[in-house]
Amino acid sequence: MTQQAVAVPPNEPEVRSRAFDLPRMYELMLLIRRFEESLYRKYREGKIGGYLHRYDGQEALVAGVVPLLEPGDLVLSTYRDHAHALAVGTPPGEIMAELMGRATGCAGGKGGSMHLIDPSRGFLGGDGIVGGPVPVSVGVGFALKYRAEQRICVCYFGDGAMNQGGVHEALNMAGLYSLPILFILENNGYAMGTAVHRSTAQPDMLLKARAHGVDARRVDGMDPIAVLEQAETALEEIRRTGAPIFMEMTCYRFVGHGVADNAQQQQFYRSTEEIEEWKSRDPVEALKNHLLGSGDLDTERIEAMERTIADQITAAIEFAESSPAPLPDTLYEHVFAKG
């Protein structure tokens, strides 16, 4: 009866089929990595304002899950949301334009880095508040259940959010109402600069979820294949049972929390050795090596991928830089819904 901005995402079989394969996963991870690198360059050039939270090192968490979703499934993310937008298929140009504050951005230039959004592709947005998307996901999951459409809400959040009260209220309600939500805890070990063991008395995240009656699992987020497999299983289970699953994906953020959290700043909370050790397990490299070893990819194809991605990013930058800023008279537009 009521029409809402969330339309059914277009079916994109080449990305979203169960035939989604590892080479494609690799290509997406590579796109995410190269895109984040380009964003950092543009930030340094002063073309991007505000905060910039990069996903480098965590690519598998998105690339191994989002492409598996079906039309009508919905994704919520945090302020570290560029990868999620890319994964649902938001054109890189629209993402770049949003970060550059252009009218052609995926949020019309009013959201910025933390508030990428693409409802038409099932992405209900990033969220600038730690733990913020988790209560929202309860509502989204409830709506999906209410309509009995066997769709799934995937909600991403970080380890810092596990100490937010609202997250526990939400997990409890998801468990209580048995809502079709895949909670993905992006556990990169640090809530900004505070290590998990310094911020929680119970570092076992699975126990926290289970306390709310939610099935909880852990997967190594640095292992793309494991992520893909476990996500596939979990999504299939949720679609079948309608009940939520909590997946802790352990991972590591290769760069600072934000741009201001530079190498020097990071020395206050983590060592160069630790960073280097995690980087040696770079999931992008790991998957590449796996695919080269298995013969699913060769160097030539990988180079072709790199070129394609570089061209995509160049085109995205050109699109964004040539796009107009939002008109001043749009300042008061969209404070309220139209109509």
Binding site: V6, V138, N172
Partner: peptide
């Protein structure tokens, strides 16, 4: 829907459901 005494959860339930079209 009866809810627990969880105001953040209640507000999130309403916000998310509204964003999803209810």
């Amino acid at each position: 829907v009866d809810t627990p005494i969880s105001e953040i959860g209640i507000a999130g339930l309403a916000t998310g459901a509204a964003m999803a079209g209810l």
